[in-house]
Design a binder for these strands. Sequence first.
RNA 1: GCGACCUUUA
Length: 245
Amino acid sequence: SRTYTGLISAFAKAGKFDRAYGLLKEMRTQGAAPDTVTYNVLIDSLGPAGRTSEAEALVEEMLRQGLQPSMSTYSILMKHFGREKQWDKAEEAFQNMQRAGIRPDVVVYGTLIDAFGRAGEWGRAEHVFEDMLSSGVDGNAAVFNGLIMAYGKSRQADKAKAILQRMNRAGIAPTVVTYNSILDAFAREKRVEDMEAVFRNMLLGEYSPNLITWNTLLKGYGEVQRMKSLDETLRKMALSGVEPD
RNA sequence: GCGACCUUUA
């Protein structure tokens, strides 16, 4: 059954859905029942293909087969809805999960915060964050980063940057993603001086810029046509020898 | 064996 799941995952991620589905049928005839993970990997692969409704149908099928969607199933679905900016659907899945008796963990909360943030619903993102804390679930860097993105997307770079203080108080170390998200927030507002200040702090903090860091800086300089800075950044990027993570 | 965050739904 795990062998089939692995194969299905490989085909589905390669966009060969017909083959993946074929294997799903084959499993049954072989008496190797698809389990929750089998469905999860399939559902996950359908998102990037823009086949979210098919993913929903698979969840229905799981239920019909008597399989309980797991917390991963819900977070995968919520992630896809979030990427489609369907925050209401993400929230609905979140509620369905709780109705099924599953208590959300930090990943699920993070996914919901992200879904709200992508849709520009920063107030809802904040609310969920507070709910998470009241439920006794501690935030981690990914969750704080999601909040930062929510502010950045809604043009509130100062609030995005202020999250650093909140993380510090919570004893959560920023990550490269944290810095990249704040850089992006300033880039969006064309505030390149602020962006540079954040970048300097990042380096002082011994963080290594990754490809996304450089691309974000380039985006910021591009916004204001700072050709000289663009040029310097391209040079530094080449010197740094970055590779995609 | 599967789940959340950054440039980039291009």
